[in-house]
């Protein structure tokens, strides 16, 4: 049996737009006939349930505790996207008690058991649901569950904004974590998001200098930039941006997302 791909989206800092990109990407793939599952492993600050406005009866926290199976956790949201594919969502719990529990559960035995449950669920997702893509949202930075989620994935996508703080942090993270994972077959790529300069005033000028800048960045970080997505104010600052990539296909953001989706398929 040919397994699909497991892709994790990660960042050094919060606020890089991971969740927005991932939700849109998952919807795009599903709309185009792929079977996709998106799991919210940003266990320390969950936001996908707010994004999709869902209150699931079981969360990924229940799965990690061994109190629910993956089938109990998943919600089929294919109808909200339309198209011929499938979109399953697994949400983590935004309850204060559940987040605290994840924060304080440092006992290795528990962590190992939880990791085993995640991997068992991952295998089941590919075998039982025939997934093409399992997309994992992760917590920013180097934390227990961001590392675990990254280790469970084949492809790693580092979402970053082009600020010095983000670049330096990402650089260190690549050295400490990504290079170790790459030794065992993981591939990783950079996705620049919220790139300034897309406004009509300086778009032309930025387009030229961007190329040179990206070459320098790739050399500095030792990783390939797979996409550069401009900052679109109407998307970024919309109070409830919701699957723009499929709801507004003519929007430049949607076109950039399609490019990203294609680049990931080829990666």
């Amino acid at each position: 049996m040919t397994l699909g791909k497991t892709l994790a989206f990660h960042s050094y800092k919060g606020g890089t737009g991971k969740t927005t990109l991932l939700a849109n990407l998952a919807a795009l793939y599903a709309m185009n006939g792929k079977k996709v599952c998106l799991l919210d492993f940003d266990l320390y600050a969950p936001s996908l349930c707010t994004y999709f406005r869902k209150t699931p009866s079981h969360s990924l926290n229940d799965l990690l505790k061994g109190e629910a199976d993956i089938a109990d956790v998943l919600m089929d949201l294919s109808a909200e996207v339309g198209g011929s594919g499938k979109l399953f969502l697994g949400f983590s719990s935004p309850r204060k008690e559940d987040i605290n529990e994840i924060e304080i559960k440092h006992e290795l035995k528990w962590q190992l058991a939880a990791m085993r449950r995640l991997l068992s669920a991952k295998n089941e997702l590919f075998e039982e649901y025939g997934l093409d893509y399992l997309l994992l949202d992760t917590s920013p930075g180097i934390r227990y569950w961001s590392i675990n989620t990254l280790a469970a994935a084949d492809g790693l996508f580092l979402i970053m904004k082009i600020s010095d703080m983000d670049i330096e942090g990402t650089k260190n993270m690549i050295k400490d974590i990504y290079d170790a994972l790459a030794k065992f077959g993981s591939k990783y790529f950079l996705v620049l998001n919220k790139v300034p300069g897309a406004s009509p005033i300086n778009e032309k000028q930025w387009g030229t200098s961007e190329k040179n800048w990206i070459v320098d960045l790739e050399r500095d970080l030792g990783a390939k930039v797979i996409a550069s997505i401009p900052c679109y104010c109407d998307v970024q600052f919309n109070r409830h941006e919701f699957l723009s990539a499929v709801k507004q296909p003519e929007h430049p953001f949607s076109k950039k997302l399609i490019e990203l989706a294609e680049a990931i398929e080829k990666a």
Partner: peptide, 12 residues
Amino acid sequence: ECAGTYRKLKAL
């Protein structure tokens, strides 16, 4: 895949 994940976690 499981063997690969084990190796990764062991390395980290």
